[in-house]
Design a protein around this nucleic acid. Structure first.
Length: 809
DNA sequence: AGCACGCCGACT
DNA sequence: GTCGGCGTGCTC
């Protein structure tokens, strides 16, 4: 029996980022396993924390006294072998804490709530009992966290021995149960009971007959009531008389949008493949069958049937007794794609949305973990789904930047996918109409296996794209969000009873308040960023820290009343559209109208049923939608993203325009696209107009080569922050010096510079961007910097490292 | 993170 | 003297 356990404790700091050795009390010997959560004492006093057992029976060189594990929280491991190894790798490659990586891979509910409970053990004076404890004898420390006066009073009382502080680790994971009934007596015993019944007790008589049909089973009381028509009271009678007992039955919460009717009898059949699709399916299947962890780049124009390739290769993996994982960007995790997978694979599918409640997410996770779900569809974090024996991993829209998490651990789902592919000897399929430059470059270098789908399944040509020069438009017709050409075409669609999609590119752009007299912009008091107008709540909000304040009536700077909001929101566009085309029925889709659960699906369903003529939305409508009756797509402002100081700005604009263009003419009707822009000659816009990925790729690669950007260089961004700007700058200069001394001669440092948003959440940020081609020492150097900045001379400095950043700003 | 320890200035 | 402020270092 193991005696020692290595535990990663829930204390996310650099100094505690290592396993701690604990003794296993003999009472817990049988429960302890690698991958279970435990409660352990940590530090002085009586503090307890949650931890994960990462190894058993490893020798330790710690010569202090070992503490015993207090409790085991799980009956079976919540982290399997693969995910444990993965979590360590993740911590290493993303410069984050091991414990944070473990939590990232698990549903939120498995992160226990820790609290400090203060209890009165001796008489305290009335005042204290009333003011602090409100007449009760217990108090949660968290409720007084921001009241220093009370805290110091409490410490005083503690020293006086009048109160104690208890540490509680509370598991929040709850399985949902419904009441079930289970007969206690057997058939004959029940029959005997029947003889003692009052002749008028018809209901109880019926209950006995029913119980006789279900001996040895457990039935949900709801179902039993339904079948027998008996009331709850009758079952309670039966319980009292000792015929049956009530037992909890574990059920899964039923997430919205995947209604119970997952009919495994009426699944969709595979579609017929064209030769290109067939070739792709064959190649991928060969890799699945050969356990070959190859990475494929499946490049196919919109409408070329990538999804069918995914589905048929998934089917092959399932046939081999393996499981399958399919990632899609959150933004295109639409009911359309989800239901298509569900219609093909039925109840074997688990879906991991960001909109699931914690409980629902936990349940889906358990279905996967127990092997009940063998296909997982989800957004970024679904890459950690506890599927065993993976046969294939698919990343749809692999170029999407949302696959990179923008907070710690800053992992890229594509890299995790490749890691899991290797571990499981399974192929990874990266699918896109507009692959990231990185992936396409690797395909050219034969690191990835390129599979090309050049033809659309419906044989329709790609829609013609008209570029409208808004500079001319404004000169001729004045300010408007709509060009004459776009308006005319919208009107034509209304006549023909066809539908249109309008996209407002909100990137780098929002409605802010500005004073027309003094030019002052309303800014967040905590962050160096302007506040955004939210009409739904009638407030100004900061998108970085969540600060919220009422909409001002006058300028806070000069008290002028000429304060106006600027920027085109979807709401404003909708109003203008109503005036220009009063007869058009419009559905607006943006963060505001889809915030409520299920609204996203509902609006799309309405549009699909032609309850509206125009779908007006932000980027969220650019991806994955497939409405056969849509024949016109309009982009109101193509170039708001181009002006951003971001080396991927052109790539993102090209992607967005290509993607949204693909929404037109999906079925047998010819579609067309209108793109409005102030930069009609920009190559990203011209290449999108000509549907010319290759030209865009070559042009952009040349620019990246010239400027030394990815994929020609690897990049790492190092950020440091401090509440005082001078301190942040000073720390950064020291870090810069340390870097400069340690890097390879060919490595390039950019900075230090203040970040574009220099102040966030009351902290000032500086950054250094490191560009390198080959620098084997860099990884260790960065870890050393992380360690060094934990102590002496770096007080209150926070350092974080972002490998392969998506933005430099 | 959360806590103790230890050093310093400012009071009952 | 000693209370409590904060900088420093440790947690199996």
């Amino acid at each position: 029996m193991p005696e020692l356990a290595q535990v990663i404790v829930d204390v996310p700091t650099m100094q505690t980022n290592q396993p701690y050795t604990y003794q296993i009390p003999s009472t817990l010997e049988k429960q302890i396993q690698v991958g279970v959560r435990v409660v352990v004492p940590f530090g002085n006093g009586s503090r307890t924390v949650q931890g994960f057992v990462v190894a058993l029976d490893q020798p330790t060189d710690y010569d202090g006294k070992l503490k015993p594990i207090k409790a085991v929280m799980d009956l079976r491991p919540v982290i399997n072998k693969e995910l444990l190894v993965l979590s360590k790798w993740l911590a290493d490659t993303t410069y984050s804490f091991w414990i944070s990586c473990l939590y990232t891979m698990l549903p939120n509910l498995l992160k226990a709530k820790t609290s400090r409970i203060i209890r009165i053990i001796d008489d305290v004076d009335e005042q204290v009992a009333f003011d602090i404890f409100h007449g009760r004898d217990e108090l949660d420390m968290a409720t007084v966290q921001d009241k220093p006066a009370i805290i110091s009073k409490l410490f005083q009382l503690q020293r006086a021995g009048k109160i104690t502080i208890d540490y509680r680790v509370e598991d929040r994971a709850r399985v949902k149960t419904v009441t079930g009934i289970k007969p206690i007596l057997n058939f004959e015993q029940l029959e005997e009971q029947r003889t003692s019944l009052h002749p008028n007790a018809h209901a109880q008589n019926r209950l006995i007959s029913y119980l006789q049909t279900i001996t040895g089973q457990v039935v949900k009381i709801k179902d039993a009531e339904h079948v027998t028509g008996l009331k709850t009271g009758t079952f309670n009678q039966g319980q009292k008389k000792g015929w049956l007992e009530k037992v909890p039955i574990e059920v899964y919460r039923n997430p919205l949008g995947m209604q119970a009717s997952l009919d495994n009898q009426h699944l969709d059949s595979p579609l017929h493949l064209n030769p290109e699709q067939q070739h792709a399916v064959d190649e991928i299947n060969k890799a699945i069958d050969n356990h070959d962890p190859e990475t494929f780049l499946l490049q196919g124009v919109t409408g070329s049937g990538k999804t069918e390739v995914y589905l048929q290769t998934i089917a092959n993996a399932l046939k081999q007794g393996k499981t399958a994982l399919m990632l899609v960007p959150e933004i295109s995790l639409t009911p359309q794609i989800v239901s298509r997978v569900q219609r093909r694979f039925g109840s074997k599918v688990a879906v991991l949305h960001s909109s699931l409640s914690n409980g629902e997410r936990y349940d889906e996770w358990r279905r996967i973990e127990r092997g009940e779900a063998r296909v997982v569809v989800g957004a970024r974090s679904a890459i950690f789904a506890p599927l065993k024996n993976l046969g294939i991993i698919i990343l749809d829209e692999e170029h999407e930047s949302s696959y990179k998490q923008d907070e710690a651990p800053r992992y890229h789902a594509r890299e995790v996918a490749k890691w899991r592919g290797k571990y499981n000897h399974a192929p990874v399929v990266l699918g896109s109409a507009t692959p990231s430059l990185e992936s396409r470059a690797r395909a050219i270098k034969k690191v990835y296996h390129l599979l090309h789908l050049r033809h659309r399944v419906n044989q329709q040509p790609l829609p013609p794209i008209e570029i409208v020069d808004m500079r001319e438009e404004v000169k001729k017709y004045g300010e408007s969000n709509f060009s004459q050409s776009l308006l005319r075409k919208l009107d034509q669609r209304l006549q023909k009873r066809e539908q249109s999609i309008l996209m407002l590119n909100r990137r780098g752009f929002s409605s802010f308040m500005m004073c027309r007299d003094c030019g002052a912009v309303l800014k967040c008091p905590n962050c160096d960023i302007s506040l955004t107008l939210h009409m739904d709540t009638h407030t100004m909000k900061c998108h970085y820290c969540g600060h919220e304040e009422p909409i001002p009536y006058e300028c806070p700077n000069c008290h002028s009343r000429k304060i106006r909001y600027y920027g085109t929101g979807t709401e404003k566009v909708e109003q203008e559209l109503h005036q220009l085309l009063p007869q058009a029925r419009i559905i607006r889709m943006d963060v505001d109208t889809t915030k409520r659960k299920g609204m996203h699906a509902k609006l799309l369903r309405q549009f699909g049923q032609h309850q509206a003529d125009i779908l007006l939305g932000t980027q969220m409508i650019a991806k994955g939608l497939d409405f056969p009756n849509v024949t016109l797509v309009g982009v109101l402002n193509a170039d708001t993203g181009l002006g951003l100081p971001d080396f991927r700005a052109s790539e993102r604009t090209f992607d967005l325009l290509s993607q949204v263009s693909g929404r037109a003419g999906r079925a047998n009707k010819q579609g067309e696209v209108v793109i409005q822009t102030y930069n009609p000659d920009h190559y990203a816009i011209q290449d999108a107009k000509n549907h010319n990925y290759d030209q865009f790729f070559n042009q952009e690669m040349a620019l990246r080569h010239q400027a030394g950007y990815p994929p020609y260089y690897y990049t790492v961004r190092l950020m440091a922050s401090h509440p005082e700007e001078a301190q942040a700058a000073k720390a950064m200069v020291r870090i810069y010096e340390q870097l400069r001394r340690g890097i390879a001669p060919s490595t390039i440092l950019l900075g230090p510079t203040p970040r574009a948003i220099a102040r966030m959440k009351r902290r000032y940020y500086y950054q250094i961007v490191i560009k390198y081609k080959k620098d084997p020492q860099l990884h260790n150097l960065l870890f050393k910097i992380l360690h060094d900045t934990q102590s002496h001379g770096y007080k209150d400095v926070q350092v974080s490292i972002d490998p392969d950043p998506q933005y430099f700003m």
